[in-house]
Design a protein around this nucleic acid. Structure first.
Lengths: 130, 130
DNA sequence: CGCATACCCGGACGGTCGTACGGACAACGG
DNA sequence: CCGTTGTCCGTACGACCGTCCGGGTATGCG
């Protein structure tokens, strides 16, 4: 399934660091889980949906589409994905379905943590191999 | 370019919340930038590369492939993407190219911030529409 | 100088994601 | 009742992403 070009050099150049890295490395499953959840937020529509719900506490689908200025299909798909992942919850009132963030959603993430990455991405971007 | 099914209902149900959301919402550009950088980490190989570099300080490509137990193509592609985005820097010494995290990489992100999302994803996952 | 190593690059393929569209359903309003 | 509104669902299509594979460059060694 994997061994194709895997073995490029038999002897690691710095075995100590390799061992140290392997020891404290997240497993493939954990990395996959992390990747899955990050993929959920790695979409402009979905992330803006989360921000909007964080600000407004609760919004129905139509108002959400109105606030984001996107069509309802996009919002519908975004909400379906987020709902399936358990990041948002919904409440039906007549014909209208209201959405809000899941109760244990880590809101500091939206406020501070994420934007530091954006700042970094705007940095020099040293791309050289000497 | 966009207005197809956009206008589903002319009158927002809760105009106050819509206005409040629109006011404090990240722009499409900012959301796109955020999505771009999150997409970079939303890959098991790339995130594990970042974790490995965080632990080992510095690793060459071959040792990195060895530590992650993936072939060199995958590591090469992951490093190219991360390098282009400016998240890692490289240093050449003879035939060997050593990689490390960018100097201003927000390391707390790897340690604490990300795993809270993983924990959330393992939560009940209330998926209902009443 | 020729060969092996360490790494990079570019094209081709398969899979997956997001959108557009049509239809479906329940709920209100006349 | 019948039409409209708000939302959901399934399918089809286009685009992008990650991997595989061949070849390429430069360093070091005998």
């Amino acid at each position: 399934m994997n061994d194709d070009r895997t073995q490029s050099h038999q002897h690691p150049i710095d075995p100590e660091r390799v061992a140290r890295a392997q020891e404290r490395l997240p497993s493939r499953e954990d990395a996959a889980a992390l990747a899955s959840i990050l993929t959920l937020i790695s979409d402009p529509t979905r992330s803006r949906v989360l921000y909007a719900l964080d600000v407004a506490e609760e919004l129905c689908v139509g108002d959400l589409a109105l606030a984001l200025e996107v069509n309802e299909d996009a919002v519908g798909y975004a909400l379906r994905v987020l709902r399936t992942a358990g990041l948002v919850t919904n409440r039906r009132e007549g014909r209208v379905v209201y959405y809000r963030l899941a109760v244990d959603f880590p809101e500091p993430l939206l406020d501070s943590c994420l934007w530091r990455l954006v700042d970094l991405s705007r940095s020099p971007g040293t791309d050289d191999a000497s």
